[in-house]
Each structure stands twice: as structure tokens, then as C-alpha cells.
């Protein structure tokens, strides 16, 4: 995408995908552009702060802010459903889970950073290679003659977001979707196979045994004589 968008940044919000129903007219375009730059700046800034902040808890909080503003960007291009998903799934579940994990795990960050200078040349080398590849990829992108219309996602512009996603997931790509479900099942089975242990000496609750138990099995009437105890 890079080159094209960098040349005409204000078209960012007037791409064919943009179908925001509550912002129309020329003046609203200004508001849209303003909102875009606001969200985009915050996403980039909080993304950078996620990496550089020393306290991992702060990192996660910055990450949550980044997710939130990314949701705003999604809203701007008219992808309401994905925006909601970002807020509910990423902000609501994933990031909070991260936060718990980070707070619960006792990670010694000083130790993690110890190897930093030692591996720095190697890391820099890889970074340079990746950078060259990216420049290369962006460079050849313009030579490849493909417009947005040849790519996937040419759908009816009046179709609501959720319906379009649903059609792709449950109709066109049903088999892949179900396959992805089985991949998750395999992962779950694998995790249990590798970690589950039969532990002796525990007394788990046996619900069916509890339900089957009748009063006459559990209690008995005795009539001890005076001065004698109950035989148990």
C-alpha cells in the first residue's frame, strides 16, 4: 500500500472502502481527516511507547491504547464490526489477559536484557537485511501492475460489514474456517497430552456417585443403651 498512500494521504479516507454513513459532505471530510490523523498518531506513539517503556505493565497499558485507537481507524474506513471486535476481543480479553500474565509471572527483566549488547550486532544485521527487503518489496510494488480491484474484497458496497464477513467466512471459505477450528482442537489436545498428569492421593468430586447416594446408605438408626457409646 505504502507508496500510493504516502503520495496522496488525504485520499486515505476517501478510498472506495470508506462508507461511513454518518460523515458526509466536504466539511465532514475535514473532520474525517482530522480524526484519522489523531487516531493514527496515537496508534504510532503508543506503539512506540509499548516497546520502549521499561515497566512491562506500562507496556501492556500502552498496547491497550494502541488497540483502542486502531479500532477508531477501523471505524473510519467503515469496518464497524472489526472495530467492535478489536475493542471487545483485543482490549477486553487479550490485553487484559496479557496484563494478568505479566503481573503474575516473575520475570527478571534485568536478566533478559543482559544479553542485549552481546547479540546487538547480530540483531542489527538482521534488522538491516529486513529493512533492505522491505525497501525492495515497496520498490517493486509499483512495477507490479495491480489495482485494488483485482484484489479480493470486491464486494457489494451496500452490504453491511457483518454480512460481508459472514459470507466470506461461512460460505466461500467454510472449509478453511472449519479446518482452523480443528487446528485449535489439535493444539488443545496436544497441550493436554504433554502436561496432564494422573495424580494419586487427590479426592476428586464424583457427581454421579453423590447423586446415587440414598439416605438409607448414609445413615442408620441406633439406640445405644444408657452409659454405652455408639459403635462406629
Amino acid at each position: 500500500m505504502g507508496a500510493r498512500n504516502r503520495r496522496e494521504p488525504c485520499r486515505r479516507c476517501a478510498l472506495p472502502l470508506s462508507r461511513s454513513r454518518f460523515l458526509q459532505g466536504s466539511q465532514d471530510n475535514v473532520i474525517q481527516a482530522f480524526a484519522f490523523y489523531l487516531f493514527a498518531t496515537i496508534v504510532i506513539a503508543s506503539g512506540a511507547l509499548t516497546i520502549v517503556s521499561r515497566n512491562p505493565v506500562h507496556s501492556v497499558l500502552w498496547l491497550i491504547l494502541a488497540f483502542f485507537n486502531a479500532a477508531g481507524l477501523m471505524l473510519l474506513i467503515g469496518a464497524e464490526f472489526i472495530a467492535m471486535l478489536l475493542v471487545i476481543v483485543y482490549v477486553g480479553a487479550v490485553a487484559v489477559l496479557f496484563l494478568f500474565v505479566v503481573m503474575m509471572l516473575d520475570i527478571d527483566f534485568a536478566e533478559l536484557r543482559a544479553g542485549f549488547t552481546r547479540y546487538l550486532p547480530f540483531g542489527l544485521l538482521i534488522a538491516v537485511v529486513l529493512l533492505c527487503e522491505m525497501i525492495f518489496a515497496v520498490g517493486v510494488w509499483n512495477f507490479a501492475d495491480i489495482g485494488p480491484d483485482t484484489r479480493m474484497g470486491t464486494i457489494d458496497p451496500d452490504m453491511p460489514n457483518i454480512e460481508a464477513i459472514g459470507r466470506a467466512l461461512y460460505d466461500r471459505y467454510l472449509l478453511v474456517f472449519e479446518g482452523a477450528g480443528i487446528v485449535l482442537l489439535v493444539a488443545m489436545v496436544g497441550a493436554i497430552v504433554l502436561t496432564h498428569r494422573e495424580r494419586g492421593g487427590v479426592r476428586p468430586q464424583n457427581i454421579s456417585k453423590q447423586i446415587k447416594r440414598r439416605p438409607e446408605d448414609a445413615t442408620r438408626n441406633t439406640q445405644p443403651e444408657v452409659g454405652k457409646g455408639v459403635e462406629l
Binding site: 479446518g179 480443528i182 487446528v183 489439535v186 493444539a187 489436545v189 496436544g190 497430552v193 504433554l194
Partner: peptide
């Protein structure tokens, strides 16, 4: 799917 099962 194949690889995940194989790792386990």
C-alpha cells in the same frame, strides 16, 4: 494441522 499433531 499435520505439523501441530507431529510436534506433540
Amino acid at each position: 494441522m499435520q505439523s501441530l499433531a507431529a510436534y506433540v
